[in-house]
Design a binder for these strands. Structure first.
Lengths: 324, 324
DNA sequence: CTGAAAGCGCTAACAT
DNA sequence: ATGTTAGCGCTTTCAG
């Protein structure tokens, strides 16, 4: 690969001049500019971004840590983040933590060593402790860690909307399936709202939490199955993620429960799958794209020394489709 | 952040020695090593990977270009690739091309400028031409470009298995939905097999290709709808990707066709969705994980100057579930 | 066993 | 308007 030196030699100038032309800095005579540009062209010169990053101590890369992009929600999120970053000349280094604590920690170290300009945390199993000394542009999804800015949807509102819909539709015994609440995510507000609303209307409730891993499909399925066996009269379920809502749908089908006739189902997230396969899923819509954009922008602000909003809460709305 | 110099000063040695301790090269007395290690510890030293990469002209990063990780197939593929790369101390820079030709080209340039150690191409709209001068560790999925190594499943076999199953199940009029064949992907062999097998048994066929973008959901849906309207007697469909098979399933449901009673359906890929939602999808299984591993290994081989296999074809098998 | 010094490609003071 | 020079943090000859 041609270096800046090759270009300089070919154009009969010094590397400084080439650098100036390339970066459009300082005064350059038209004649010189033309010569340099031509030399670049002829040599098909591309600057070594590694060298530039090294010098500036800034890589134009953002690290993105998610549980896994196999999960359609995070796949969509990652896509939106990458798109917006790309529009701003930024790249994304992707890290699938599988919600493994050790891996997550290693990733943070790795990203810092690689001088990424910021970290978007969509996965959190780490003790908050671990972040204490992390002085770095960072933004989290659905988790509050010290004073780091965070992105969330209006979880409580979402929980309310979902639960109220089920009750309004006549459900008498509600189930709720959520993350392991120990993880202390902001999404736990969905559960809080569920409890509040159900309490207010005096309907019976059953709750199950996924294990901390959350993606143990078999484990989840088994738990859901047990739930229905123990409480065969459940007639409404609010699940805190669309993805797991599909497990519920599935188990209902297998146990002969018709949706929405016997059991009504509401998810959360509004992933595109919800309107891919029949029956279309009733769910709480989070504005994934806007949230992704905000995450990237929040990193940019920190890079540029602009004080970012700490609390970035986005409105949700109910999307009623065919499962209620 | 502490640099190697800080460590050297603190330990009372030179940077050379610190480097040697860190990289485990050359002879170091136990006493010195201990001193250095301690200084590292105390300063919480992490080497600047950017500097190392710059010096070595090697970033330990692999670029991955896919249409989009929102698509569950590519989400799964990306996850597998990232996992395997991670196990080998490599990182993944993710690029969603959206099958946009300009973006794809820019990505390749960007990746080269950033000195990624190799590129995994899971997206190809570029003219083969563009790659002519690309002397770089590279591997493609399902596309043959010059002598670059490629990964594919046994597409022809898969097409045979799918089509034969449909015929054996008694289908009299088969439809096939595939990529735009102009893209000249190796996956077109699936279509070839479909044509061959259908011809052999003398069953009627209908074929539609997606547009070159391929992810235009509405466009696809419309095309599928039209197909059924024009040929209401279609009783078996082989779709060259699971993802689009769901569109077919959906349109069948909406037009009152029961699957598998009225229409039998076979997909391709075996994404995990296939066994998430009822009815479980009959499909052709590609060993995604093994293929991902092979892709990464193929890059590694090229980096290390080992001549990689050019043709990496993986066996497929039929997974019969509930749509046939 | 350890140190001195050069250099990776680029940018940015500081001349001129 | 252009050139000279130093230096980013690290690795690696080459000496000792």
């Amino acid at each position: 690969m041609a270096t800046i030196k090759d270009v300089a030699t070919k154009a009969g100038v010094t590397v400084t001049t080439v650098s100036r032309v390339f970066n459009n800095r300082g005064y350059i005579s038209d004649a010189t500019r033309k010569k340099v540009l031509q030399a670049m062209e002829e040599l098909n010169y591309r600057p070594n971004e590694l060298a530039r990053s090294f010098y500036k101590n800034r890589s134009n890369i953002i690290g993105l840590i998610v549980p896994t992009v196999s999960n359609p929600f995070f796949g969509q999120l990652a896509t939106c983040i990458e798109n917006f970053a790309y529009d701003n000349k930024y790249k994304i280094l992707i890290c699938n933590s599988n919600l493994d604590q050790a891996k997550e920690k290693e990733y943070v170290e790795m990203l810092k060593s690689n001088k990424v300009d910021g970290i978007i945390m969509g996965s959190h199993t780490l003790d908050v402790e671990e972040f204490k000394n992390l002085d770095y542009p960072i933004v989290t999804f659905d988790r509050k860690i010290y004073d780091f800015p965070f992105i969330r949807s209006d979880n409580y509102k979402g929980g309310e909307l979902a639960t109220e819909l089920l009750i309004q539709k006549g459900c008498k015994k509600l189930a709720h399936i959520c993350n392991n609440l120990e993880l202390n995510m902001l999404g736990n507000k969905r559960t809080e709202a569920f409890v509040d609303v159900a309490g207010k209307y005096g309907v019976q409730t059953v709750m199950i939490e996924t294990d901390t891993i959350g993606f143990n499909r078999q484990g989840n399925d088994l738990a859901i199955q047990n739930m229905f066996e123990k409480h065969p009269d459940i007639d409404g379920v609010f699940v805190s993620s669309d993805f797991i809502a599909y497990s519920v749908m599935n188990i209902c089908t297998m146990s002969g429960r018709k949706i929405p006739d016997d059991v009504k189902l509401v998810g959360y997230d509004d992933i595109f799958l919800g309107s891919l396969v029949k029956p279309y899923l009733t769910t709480i819509h989070q504005p994934i794209e806007t949230m992704a954009q905000c995450a990237v922008q929040t990193i940019f602000n920190q890079i540029e020394g602009i004080r970012p909003n700490v609390d970035n809460t986005f409105p949700v709305h109910l999307v009623e489709r065919e499962t209620t």
